[in-house]
Design a protein around this nucleic acid. Structure first.
Lengths: 256, 256
DNA sequence: CGCTCATTTGACAGAAATCAAAAGCGGTGG
DNA sequence: CCACCGCTTTTGATTTCTGTCAAATGAGCG
């Protein structure tokens, strides 16, 4: 806050970043953080905005500071295929490739810490410890995607939905940074529409809706509004996933 | 071949490796190749052998020189869930993690270039250029898995099967190193049983069999034996994938 | 040859997609 | 404040596809 510090605002902004120690940045020493500060800048996207379009040159990458991003595989016939969701602290974009094989769209308002891809790549080559961090994150992500993919192909719609809701419940918890005990029960925040959820779970809005209503009728969840659920019976939800609590735990941290 | 060269066989073996320039090794200079030689050794697995068991300490990693490896997610109830297939030049195992989240099993006889995980990790930290190569390979793999996963969740069984067969056709081509024009048509080599294919495609052997027979009846393929198909009509196969030829191309190199 | 196991075929039940329509929700303008 | 409009979500009826159970066929092997 001193005038001297203010003279180089870029060099301190990362130190107040809320997700600083959850991302690649945690591997950076003081000097490297300052380098990161210099090549990164905040960028805000409105809900619905396209951040990167599939096939386009992806000239930047970034870390999500707040909000949720849809990762999708829009095919030429206009049909969108949701491939994953990205949450705060997740890395966005594709380093070391000219074009992105997926589209990124803001599912909610999004706050992104954005960097020119080239600058980021150059930084990685100067700082193998950061590149190493990215490698480990990517390996973890790959495992998580494979685990999700296995879950998806081996289960029916209700089990997929239950698993999806369970992971979201955990995510929502951690997003409840502030004290907000409206109810004694956990609240599940759905960042995307029914249509998109159906897409993500490989089904249709109609079938999805029937499964939602089935959960409501059986007292597992309550719908406050379309995007806000109350989890009434976690055990019942877990029972419907067809997985054990441990397996579900292993899947969390999964964003795709 | 000289007696002098034979004196240090480890230092040259990588230079005659058939997949040498398809793997991480291609980023290695002469000296680094020699280091790789020292920490790696050939290992052979028989069809059906487990290479790494899910949950176990994965103390080694490797590159597949020949053969096909099943990557699976065996759940506690004994039900195996196939997550991917690994082909020659693919990297096997998980660096930078104590345990493997998946099982690796030899689908055919497998020739592996195996390394102690710790030694490999140490080598990566000494040679950022190799680590970089691993990062890029992992990023590509992640894209491919996401693309496969999107395909899987958006299509029905016939479309999945057609896509699977198409990618195998391309793989089989490249494995036909020698001239083997038994027929004018491409030959598709299936490295795994019907049961495993069903598992991989998220269906049952019965439904899979019906779809296979449907392709046979419609003259798209011919079965020489259970593991060897002849592709009679590639266009018809592509039509059944529900994808364009371009999208399929993008998915190749995909092993999961 | 007789055994076992993998694959295929058949019959049926269940799950999900599709087609169609009603209900809910949010914004606009009267 | 209310009526209207467009959109999303839900519900209903029906068809299609897939899983399940059961049995037949086929392939490999001692």
């Amino acid at each position: 806050m001193s005038p001297f510090a203010v003279a180089r605002p870029d060099c301190t902004k990362c130190e107040v970043c809320p997700i600083h120690n959850l991302t690649l940045c945690r591997a950076a020493d003081r000097e490297t953080v300052s380098e990161l500060s210099r090549i990164s800048h905040d960028r805000f996207y409105r809900k619905g905005e396209t951040i990167i379009l599939r096939g386009d040159e992806a000239n930047f990458v970034g870390n999500i500071i707040s909000g949720v991003v849809k990762l999708s595989n829009t095919s030429r016939d206009g049909h969108e295929q949701l491939v994953g969701l990205l949450f705060p602290s997740d890395f966005l974009g594709r380093a070391f490739a000219e074009t992105s094989r997926f589209s990124y769209e803001a599912a909610t308002d999004v706050h992104l810490c954005q960097m020119e891809r080239r600058s980021f790549e150059a930084l990685l080559s100067r700082h193998p410890e950061i590149e190493h961090e990215l490698l480990v994150a990517t390996l973890d992500e790959l495992d998580a995607v494979r685990e999700w993919s296995a879950m998806m192909s081996g289960h029916r719609t209700m089990e997929r939905l239950a698993t999806f809701l369970f992971t979201l419940a955990r995510r929502s918890e951690s997003q409840h940074s502030g004290p907000e005990p409206d109810t004694p029960n956990p609240v599940i925040l759905l960042p995307i529409s029914r249509h998109d959820i159906a897409d993500y779970l490989g089904t249709t809005p109609e079938t999805l809706s029937r499964n939602f209503q089935s959960l409501v009728r059986q007292g597992v969840i309550r719908q406050h509004d379309v995007y806000r659920l109350e989890l009434l019976d976690e055990d019942a939800l877990i029972a419907r996933t067809g997985e054990t609590r441990e397996e579900l735990q292993a899947m969390i941290g999964n964003s795709a």
